[in-house]
């Protein structure tokens, strides 16, 4: 089924792309997907847009899409919004701020991010590769917020754009760990507000204390429709950081997927319970138990009688 969908995706079938993204986001058929998605020869530029809620990420992306389309880029936007840890529900409300579109060169997909998962949806790496395979040369990731999540997104993106807004705290705010450290470009959004220049100056001053990093600070106003083309120029001026994972790294990922799948299948098998008990009683060390666990997961078929 996955092979058929990937075949349709290669032929430009959007519905196949949408369905494959659903599978990937739910962690289904990951091994098959990884196998079908050979590394792309023309990797997309992956741009993460992050910043706290209400700073204007979706609206800015909406304008950025227009800039990119005027330069004939094909754009996929993956918008992550939080999923409730209580109900599992999510209100994915980013796409309506990006402007309604029927343009074939634009794909907007909303994804739910579990809390505690680094503010990005699961298996986003696979989703990005699906978009690349379909022919999108720019992939924009919109993430829930800044802070710890930015670290996760930094591994997925070539460029991290951090949005801040005027009146968002004094100069000590910018010294906090994680806020500015991860950004490759800082945007002072809502730059039509009177204190935007002051905020930009504070951010520049904080960045100047980290020698060796040359992070552009730009003022952008989506309301006044100013600064989006300049933002894109600043983004393309940066090198593509994201590297294809090494083959060994890809094997490791695949091992971890196989182990997880096998564990789900054999979780209630009596031999696993026996092993866990032996470890809990202290009869075997944790390292020994883990080694046996891996052996059970990889070698034994649950239906086969023990030799």
């Amino acid at each position: 089924m996955i092979a058929e969908l990937v075949g349709r995706l290669r032929q430009g079938d959007r519905n196949a792309l949408a369905r494959l993204v659903s599978h990937a986001a739910r962690g289904e058929h990951l091994t098959e997907l990884q196998r079908a998605l050979t590394p792309s020869l023309t990797p997309a530029r992956v741009v993460a847009v992050t910043g706290s809620g209400g700073v204007g990420k979706s609206s800015l992306i909406g304008k950025l899409i227009s800039v990119l389309r005027s330069q004939n880029h094909r754009v996929a936007v993956l918008a992550c919004d939080p999923q409730s840890p209580l109900s599992g529900g999510a209100l994915l409300g980013d796409r309506f701020r990006m402007g309604s579109t029927t343009d074939d060169g634009v794909f907007i997909r909303s994804l739910a991010a579990l809390t505690g998962h680094g503010a990005v949806a699961d298996h986003l790496d696979v989703v990005i590769r699906l978009c690349e395979k379909f022919g999108f040369d720019v992939v924009i990731l919109e993430t829930v917020g800044s802070g710890q999540g930015d670290v996760e997104v930094r591994n997925l993106a070539d460029v991290v754009v951090l949005l801040v807004q005027p009146e968002s705290g004094d100069d000590v705010q910018w010294e906090k760990a994680g806020i500015l450290e991860c950004a490759d470009v800082v945007v002072v959004h809502k730059a039509d507000l009177p204190t935007a220049e002051q905020t930009a100056a504070q951010v520049r001053a904080a960045l100047d204390l980290s020698p060796g990093r040359d992070v552009p600070v730009l003022r952008v106003s989506t309301k006044a429709n100013q600064g989006h083309a300049e933002l894109w120029q600043a983004i393309v001026a940066l090198p593509l950081r994201r590297r294809q994972p090494s083959p060994a790294c890809m094997l490791m990922q695949s091992l971890s997927d196989i182990l997880s799948a096998q564990f789900r299948e054999k979780e209630s098998a009596p031999e696993l319970a026996k092993l866990a008990e032996a470890w809990q009683r202290g009869e075997i060390t944790e390292a020994e138990a883990v080694e046996k666990l891996v052996r059970i997961l990889l070698m034994h078929q649950p239906d086969e009688p023990e030799a």
Binding site: S84, S87, G89, A90, L91, L92, G93, F96, S100
Partner: peptide
């Protein structure tokens, strides 16, 4: 949303 669904609000 509160019933556990993923709601894409298109507005």
């Amino acid at each position: 949303r509160d019933a556990g669904m993923h709601v894409i609000y298109a507005g």
